[in-house]
Design a protein around this nucleic acid. Sequence first.
DNA 1: GTCTATACAATGATAGAC
DNA 2: GTCTATCATTGTATAGAC
Lengths: 195, 195
Amino acid sequence: MNAKSDRIPADERRVQILDAAVEVFGRYGYAAATTDRVAKGAGISQPYVVRMFGTKEQLFIETLGHTLARLLRTFRAALAEADAEGLSAEARLGAAYLELVGDRGVLLTLLHGFMMGADPAIGPVARGGFFEVYRMLRQEAGFTPEQARSFLAEGMLINTLIGLDVRPTDDLATAELLACTFGDDVPESFERSIA
Amino acid sequence: MNAKSDRIPADERRVQILDAAVEVFGRYGYAAATTDRVAKGAGISQPYVVRMFGTKEQLFIETLGHTLARLLRTFRAALAEADAEGLSAEARLGAAYLELVGDRGVLLTLLHGFMMGADPAIGPVARGGFFEVYRMLRQEAGFTPEQARSFLAEGMLINTLIGLDVRPTDDLATAELLACTFGDDVPESFERSIA
DNA sequence: GTCTATACAATGATAGAC
DNA sequence: GTCTATCATTGTATAGAC
């Protein structure tokens, strides 16, 4: 809080901004996210955010890259993890994914990237990250094409269910689909119903 | 083109606007879509769009409802269709879906709805439509919960591949995943590569 | 490395006429 | 049912100092 000591290295600040951006994109969605809210989140001024990232879209693109990198790291960590509980690689990866996208910021960042693939600036980053995951599944996790495709499809359904903000108690169909997707233990992401 | 004859009934105009909105949301994404572009698309003035729909978000919500209704109709038509070629209900529904979301406007409208489920105004419409599809699969198409879940998961993966604007020629991983997902005939949505 | 002040553009939205 | 004119707001982005 003291005057001059708030100066911190650019790279550190950059990460703070990216983290704040993930939060803001998740809370308001890309459209309603503003560089100002991101700045507030990072505890700095709005012009400084612009200074570092240029434009809102550029900020998003770097946020997406940041998030995709995090996803890859998470997957690799889950793979490396000794399967103490005798879980398959598939199960460990699934659990890791679920926990990551339980953060709505991470989820919306990924989803916005995935759907804006036609944007000349966003597309390459989004596709690059997505297929890097695919390659990882094939080469590092040892999945067959079939397994990889199925794993991704399940992931995309989970994305949708979280994105939709589905509640287990909504109705019979909802309960059935959630049960069928997650079995007994529905993730905590679906629990809160504070509205 | 003549002066006064351009007055048409409100409901008709409304549909024209909604159709234009689908196109605009698909072309620019929700964030960059403007009521003005929609107005241009419908051949009317921007204030008239606002007059009819109130706000951009409200326009989106009605566009989403419109699109979900169209999706349901398309599915029901595919079910009713005599399976002349001996295709399963699953195959017919899949083909119908693929054709529909080949229209990027339809795809982005649905996806934006699905990921903004936490929005108090969008959420109910998005969830309502999604689970109406689920119920349709279970009750009208006769799918088991397992089949329905799997069908939806495949659909969500397809959404992602189209959203990402994936091209078959991008690289080996891409080609493999597309082949694994679509078999021999990859939809035309993936063909164009004009950039 | 970071801020204040501010310019500027865009766009959503209103008022009121025809 | 539809337009023209116009306003108000917001939010990105710049300039320049510290």
